[in-house]
Design a protein around this nucleic acid. Structure first.
Lengths: 246, 246
DNA sequence: AGGAATTTGTGCGTATGTATC
DNA sequence: AGATACATACGCACAAATTCC
């Protein structure tokens, strides 16, 4: 019985800490369960009423959490049948904000850290966060092993004194969540063209200064403050940007 | 008292026709009110409880409709203050699915119809709709009067026998809604590069065959069927694509 | 084939918390 | 400080879709 376990966790992460709305806590609890693999792809959740009881909450509140998961693409809700985990969506959700795919479709995204430094924010950046400094993370991004993009992410300095480069590894957002308790909730992208930056490694397909696809992004945390600013240059001959709108 | 009026409209569009969920009907009712200008930008709605009474529904149901409007960017909900119309978002919402802006930001989008024809769907298209035929709409899109993109939209043939070109004019989606009762609910975009099609008019900045930004899109109606397939070529030197993710 | 049981969807009502005015 | 108004949370009844016998 999985629920007994849930119940415990919720008790802990509930009264104890953040005083975030209960439905948010539930949503995040379930996300953690999925991410960690304790809830597997395709697995069916217990009926809402049972779950609500074990989680010591009401059906309505649980439903709001489940709706949130659905929106995130990590859950299928089927009337008359049940609620089904979509860990694929979850695996994607690790990269959920990564919006590049191979032109032929798909492609497993991986990342290779080039550098992590704490620096003054450049003056010409849009405003984000409260600190005058930021963590600059440069990465080489690959799709199915092929270098597809270079990426420079600026995380506001207030979220940590120092970032631990090895810990970041593949999933930056997972690191944010687990180590910094920072939940990226939404982002705005702007896609155009720009010149490949001078620091792009030789392994990247395009030469420094040549034109490439360009993504500019601002990300908000769940408390609706701008947390992150990032820029991505991608090789348009092998990758393209995609988005779901509503 | 605006609500009395609401009440009437809801009565009509409620029991009478579609049997869509009440909260969807309410949401659409409000959208129509905003679009038509009867609800103005910045205007404050009556308190939820009053509104619920006048609309002859419950607060919970109304709240679900309002949440929908919020998601669509047409409403600001401020705790302790009130609900405020954002007709800008609505004006945008006419083009809500239009995701191009000037590189310097913004730009008023307009459209000029090049051709409207009913044709066999090309075989190499992704599947959408049930008809073997589709309406092919070609448009020149401008931002602040500057030609920024050419666009080819294929609407499935089942939604109308024939489209009336003059009626379409600026807002295709408004036409869908008002004349065809087709509500585009969501879309998936894929952004890359492609060659400008041969039919692009001379007024378009780029020459036929030269590379341009390229958006491929599939759109779903609110009953979750694929209704539309479209392709857009845009001049990357003056426009860029933007998206809000979550 | 069909009906009963199960499960989510919709809608209503209410009580309490919290931000705004 | 008090009133107003949205946010959260709980619970119930019935509808609609699915599943199972």
């Amino acid at each position: 019985m999985v629920y007994q376990f849930f119940s415990t966790v919720v008790e802990m992460s509930n009264r104890a800490q953040s005083s975030l709305p209960l439905y948010v806590q539930l949503s995040e609890l379930l996300i953690r369960e999925i991410m960690s693999g304790r809830l597997r792809d395709g697995e069916r959740l217990p009926p809402e009423r049972e779950m609500a009881v074990s989680l010591n909450t009401s059906v309505g509140t649980l439903r709001k959490a489940l709706a949130d998961l659905t929106e995130k693409g990590m859950l299928d809700r089927v009337q008359g049948s049940g609620n089904y985990i979509r860990a694929k969506g979850a695996a994607m959700s690790v990269y959920s904000m990564f919006r590049l795919e191979l032109i032929e479709g798909g492609g497993l995204p991986t990342a290779e850290i080039l550098s992590v430094e704490r620096l003054e924010k450049p003056a010409d950046f849009p405003r984000f966060g409260e600190s005058a400094e930021g963590h600059r993370i440069r990465r080489l991004r690959k799709l199915n092993g092929k270098p597809a993009a270079v990426e420079e992410i600026w995380l506001d300095g207030s979220y940590a004194r120092k970032l631990n480069a090895p810990d970041i590894s593949e999933s930056l957002y997972l690191y944010y969540r687990t180590k910094l308790d920072l939940w990226i909730a939404r982002a705005e992208d702007s896609v155009g063209v720009d010149h490949v930056p001078f620091w792009a490694p030789d392994t990247f397909g395009l030469e420094t200064g040549s034109p490439a696809g360009f993504i500019e992004r601002i990300s908000w945390s769940r408390d609706d403050t701008r947390a992150e600013y990032s820029r991505t240059w991608f090789d348009q001959s092998i990758a393209r940007y995609f988005a779901r709108l509503s």
